[in-house]
Design a protein around this nucleic acid. Structure first.
Length: 279
DNA sequence: AAAGTAACCTGCCCGC
DNA sequence: TGCGGGCAGGTTACTT
């Protein structure tokens, strides 16, 4: 599901709705989602009675800071989402089945971690505790510190296929398969091009499109492809789906030249290209 | 060092 | 209508 724009949307909504709230009770239905601490009981004990102080995003991870200085790290995997509801009765049987962690908040609200495919992960860490998943993350593509110069250097010192580089979370964070496809199409660059061999102009184009597309997708609150895919905290769809140019459009007409869009497979991921517009 | 493969899961969609 | 195969926005470990 979630790439930077989707995670950013969830983070903003969570910040709006639960900062200052206390977590009164925690119920764990699927312990394997919790990677740390190992014992569910400790997870529960350290969370109950705390208050949510701040919420941040780093790459595709959500960080929830508690007033005990412990913090939660959440990765939504492919299908993780949060539901904020008043009572469990409002959930369908299917939703109940996939509600793996339940946080009872004050004011009789319930925050649920829901995850059909169960690839999501949650850590509860002490203030000074670090995990490599976060430590090893690369640069934030929308950070104003991240200049074209930084980007260009990154391209030059790596020899991977440009699509792999864009999706490599140790180099640049937040870009997944949908946005990698969209960015490369917009920049007119074929996904298998070797990053250090791109021209200055191509690199500039790529940098511009990366920032344009990601920031527009954030404004549009992410992308929802199918009915069962990404939703925000309140169940709304992301509107960037209306702006997709190439992702999911095999055999469709290229929006630029009207030639058919071709599907190839790269690193086991579907990759959509217009061989006429992407060189 | 980089690319490929399989594994972790459930649900949906398509073709037969 | 039902079944099987393939696919899905991610990450990780292992092999080539």
């Amino acid at each position: 599901m979630p790439e930077l724009p989707e995670v950013e949307t969830v983070k903003k909504d969570l910040a709006l709705k639960i900062i200052g709230c206390s977590i009164q009770k925690v119920k764990i239905n699927l312990p394997k989602i919790i990677k740390q601490p190992q014992k569910s009981e400790e997870f529960r004990r350290r969370l109950e009675g705390t208050c949510v102080q701040a919420i941040h995003r780093r790459g595709k991870y959500i960080l929830m800071i508690l007033d005990t200085s412990d913090y939660l790290v959440i990765h939504l995997g492919m299908s993780g989402r949060f539901l904020l509801i008043g009572t469990q009765d409002s959930l369908s049987e299917m939703d109940k089945k996939h509600s793996h962690i339940q946080f009872n908040l004050n004011l009789n609200r319930i925050l649920i971690y829901h995850d059909v495919r169960q690839f999501g992960k949650i850590w509860l860490l002490k203030k000074d505790e670090r995990i490599p998943q976060i430590q090893d993350l690369g640069l934030e593509p929308l950070d104003h510190q991240f200049s074209f110069n930084h980007f260009y250097k990154l391209l030059k010192k790596n020899r991977s296929q440009i699509k792999s580089l864009l999706m490599n979370q140790k180099k640049i964070v937040g870009i997944g398969n949908i946005y990698a496809n969209e960015i490369l199409f917009s920049a007119g660059i074929y996904p298998t091009r070797q990053s250090d061999l791109l021209t200055l102009n191509e690199a500039q184009q790529l940098y511009n499109k990366m920032r344009e597309i990601l920031s527009k997708a954030v404004r549009m609150k992410g992308t929802t492809m199918r009915d069962d895919s990404y939703r925000d905290l309140l169940g709304n769809r992301g509107n960037y789906s209306h702006f997709l140019q190439i992702y999911g459009k095999k055999d469709g007409d290229c929006p630029r030249c009207s030639q058919p869009i071709v599907l190839i497979r790269l690193n086991n991921r579907s990759t959509f290209v217009c061989p006429n517009c992407q060189k």
